[in-house]
Design a binder for these strands. Structure first.
Length: 422
RNA sequence: GUGGGCGUAGCUCAAAGGUUAGAGCACUGGACUGUGGCUCCAGAUGUUGGGGGUUCAAGUCCCCUCGUCCACCCCA
């Protein structure tokens, strides 16, 4: 194969595309009734936007960014995630001057230079939402409920809704210290990765999968024990709202986030059926980020849904089918073909999908084709029909056929489709 | 970046170092001059991912490379 797409970057074709369209449609509908407005964000940004927000020592920034210099020599990056651009947009357009909350959603491709595996690609799509300007946990609850509804509505079941509070800039250092203290004496027994994490991001030791490390971290400090009063009451209030709304959740004290900007509420929706990359959606609060971008102190929270992962799960439960045309028009001879095209235009104008016959092949193969593409009806037009002014129609699934005046051809479709024969 | 599995027709896969690399599905046509599905017949389709090596002989063995899948790292 001479020309292929890049590694980890794939085309999305029918019939998969219909699943994508359904998901996007339902997102628009549902997010709309919660007051989220669509924004379209650029795919490339100045690199600093990601370096400063995601964190210089994170893997995303250190080794996964699609970064390059443009012709002026400035460093440009293809976005690895959507929150930073959304915050940049919010600040750049002074949207903090509008009455809070300002709620937005967006969708599109993200890029990370990683080794592809199940559920992970170099170009992948997310639908994200961000809500700016509200500090109260009621908005945390709102987006969690909305996410829950969304996943349910597109047909996903059996998901785990994991929830945690990772503290703020006031209390997280305390927890971090406590954790490091706990690990300090047995550090040498941990796996090399964890020893590295101890320096770079000790919280990450909590989700190491190595058996030995799981054993060693038994009895380690729990984040919720170190929360400041504000974080604790925020978290408790969120939980009580979720309880009141009967939203299922799993308290997961070792749930940590890979991006530096998260504060307080963190959540992740996972599925057991996805392999190693099992998060279908994840999000959390980022109460400092707007300020970091030069805006006023502004509370904010959001989440992102991984499209490919949702599609993967949906493909397990949904049969994928190509849609099929309502009508195939079979014609014999040049004159009939022209008449057929005219009729096709009439019927298309009424919103039916019509496939014409494209070449001078036998009636037999034309009807075979009509059958194979799954057309509901076929029209047959030949010299007899042109002479009499009546075309023959046939309903493919039961072989029923008849004749109709050319001018009334559309009625065959509307009559039969509105009241299909048993 | 690290480790492992797999690359043969459009798709799913055969061919244990030995003729001209096959089968099913799909595709095109015919049997049935103007009536689909079922059946039967025929046809088209390959640099066996690429390059090098071993051998009288390589799809098959060896090396390199590329691609893909899975896992690690990390993440949606």
């Amino acid at each position: 194969m001479k020309y292929t797409s890049l590694k980890g970057i794939q085309d999305i074709l029918p019939p998969d595309i219909y699943i994508w369209q359904t998901i996007e449609l339902k997102a628009r509908e549902l997010f709309g009734v919660y007051g989220f407005k669509e924004i379209r964000l650029p795919i490339i940004e100045y690199s600093d936007i990601f370096i400063r927000s995601i964190g210089e020592t994170t893997d995303i920034v250190e080794k996964e960014m699609y970064a390059f210099a443009d012709k002026s020599g400035r460093s440009i990056t293809m976005r690895p995630e959507g929150t930073a651009p959304a915050v940049r947009c919010y600040v750049e357009h002074h949207l903090y001057n509008l009455p809070p909350p300002q709620k937005f959603f967006y969708s599109g491709p993200m890029f990370r230079y990683e080794r592809p595996q199940r559920g992970r690609f170099r170009q992948f799509y997310q639908i994200g939402v961000e809500a700016f300007g509200i500090s109260q946990p009621s908005i945390d609850a709102e987006i969690i409920v909305m996410l829950n509804n969304f996943l349910e509505r597109i047909g996903l079941k059996g998901l785990n809704f994991e929830l945690n509070c990772i503290g703020c800039e006031k209390c997280r250092p305390d927890y971090r210290d406590a954790l490091m203290n706990f690990f300090k004496h047995k550090l040498l027994y941990f796996c090399p990765d964890c020893q590295r994490r101890y320096v770079s991001n000790p919280l990450r030791i909590l989700d190491c999968k190595v058996e030995k490390c799981i054993e060693l971290r038994r009895g380690s400090p729990v984040v919720t024990g170190y929360l400041c009063n504000e974080c604790r009451s925020h978290f408790n209030e969120l939980i009580s709202i979720l309880k009141a709304l009967k939203i299922p959740y799993i308290l997961t004290p070792d749930l940590v986030r890979g991006l530096d900007y998260y504060t307080k509420t963190a959540f992740e929706v996972t599925s057991e059926y996805l392999g190693a990359q099992k998060a279908v959606a994840a999000g959390g609060r980022y109460d400092r980020l707007v300020e970091d971008f030069g805006g006023p102190p502004t509370h904010a929270i959001g989440f992102a849904v991984g499209m490919e992962r949702v599609v993967t799960l949906l493909k397990e439960v949904q049969s994928r089918k190509y849609p099929s045309p309502t009508l195939f028009i079979a014609t014999i001879g040049r004159e009939a073909e022209l008449e057929g095209l005219r009729i096709a235009e009439d019927i298309r104008a009424r919103g039916f999908w019509v496939e014409p016959n494209y070449g001078g092949v036998s009636l037999r193969s034309q009807l075979r084709k009509a059958d194979r593409i799954g057309a509901e009806f076929a029209f047959i037009i030949g010299s007899d029909e042109l002479r009499s002014g009546k075309i023959k129609w046939k309903e493919l699934k039961n072989g029923k056929q008849g004749e109709v005046e050319i001018d009334n051809a559309t009625k065959v479709l509307s009559n039969n489709i509105e009241s299909p024969d048993p």
